[in-house]
Design a protein around this nucleic acid. Sequence first.
DNA 1: GGCTTTCGCTACGAGTCGTAGCGTAATGCC
DNA 2: GGCATTACGCTACGACTCGTAGCGAAAGCC
Lengths: 219, 219
Amino acid sequence: MISLTATQELRVYGQGMQTRSPAGRAGRPRSAAADAAILAATREALVELGWSKLTLGDVATRAGVAKTTLYRRWAGKNELVVDAVAELFDELELPDRGSLAADIEGVVLQFAAILALPEAKSGLMAVVAEATRDEALRERIRASVVDRQKRLVLEGRARAQARGELPPEPDPRSAARTVDLIFDMVAGAVVHRTLVSAEPADEEWVRGFTRVLLQGLGT
Amino acid sequence: MISLTATQELRVYGQGMQTRSPAGRAGRPRSAAADAAILAATREALVELGWSKLTLGDVATRAGVAKTTLYRRWAGKNELVVDAVAELFDELELPDRGSLAADIEGVVLQFAAILALPEAKSGLMAVVAEATRDEALRERIRASVVDRQKRLVLEGRARAQARGELPPEPDPRSAARTVDLIFDMVAGAVVHRTLVSAEPADEEWVRGFTRVLLQGLGT
DNA sequence: GGCTTTCGCTACGAGTCGTAGCGTAATGCC
DNA sequence: GGCATTACGCTACGACTCGTAGCGAAAGCC
């Protein structure tokens, strides 16, 4: 519990390296290098061992730190893996490709490329499964992974409305529902294709998906 | 490995109780009651403990059998949970509701109801995560869970084509791709809504989803 | 230099794993 | 009924992981 708070503070330091004395904190600061090494080691262990056989002792050894250091920063395996996997989604962007269809295809391909990584496959679904019984963990995933993706949907939608490709939706409540729906449809389809069907979400598949999403099955 | 084959044979016996001497097998037969008790106990443990804290020893105690009996029938936790969760999808059907939209809404609501069960939530995603590193497990999930769902898509599509709601697709390869795409979109969206967004896939959501799936975002 | 916090290390009890061995129970075949 | 065969319950086991405690040393801020 305490270590969880401390972790969040540390990550804040990591972002703003310049801050002199972070909120009146004295003593030896936590090693940012150790933090990075631990997360990298976690991803490495996910690739080699998978979720169930991953042990915190092994991660500590790989990272070159003591096991106790790991427990001081993360409450457990779940939280550690969430942070390790979350970094994979940092590069997710939505470049303007001129049309809604092209924008969707571009971002879906990015998303699919990340999900194709073995560390994302084995880690992400496992923590989502654990999160069904852990409210705090669900919130952690939402904040560090899901919301960043959803923001892209919001952005792409606004862009398409500006282009006139999508009708404006004045009622904010209805608009929020639509965004949630689109998000679940896009992310859900890619995840299901990649993890359950175990087939690559390649360009051909993405083209077909985008066509159905925009025009429906009727045509 | 041996026990896995034996398990499948046992399940066959369970279906056709009448068979006299099943393929020249001698000796004391496996208890079908024990099998049912174990799977029920597994679901119960999934609800109370979740995937990660579920132990085979605990399941054995709940089911009233010895731990060794469990290991004789299943290779491990993964295979056991797949079988336990698979039974939840037995009742999935596709009643004819007159139109493609109504058919989709009906089956999606059924699927959502199953996914809302805590034993499905915590169990299904966990084994899918494990299956990313285990080809045999992936095949087991495909055979006992996924294919049964996909058959509904195939059936609903044929029905809609007979009604004239969907255009016929002569090329079988292209048709198979379309079915796969639709399946990933439907199942993926419901799963993502239920497990990641952690919101109920209720009637209102299903209506919106069906509208987008059939007519696209454009309208 | 003094204060504070982190770090590496060792050690620990508790719990789980998957297996082996044994005697017993239940069936099919003769 | 007797025999072979297989499943069952039970006990015990070494190996491993867990999460924590305690200690001295290290690294920063005043």
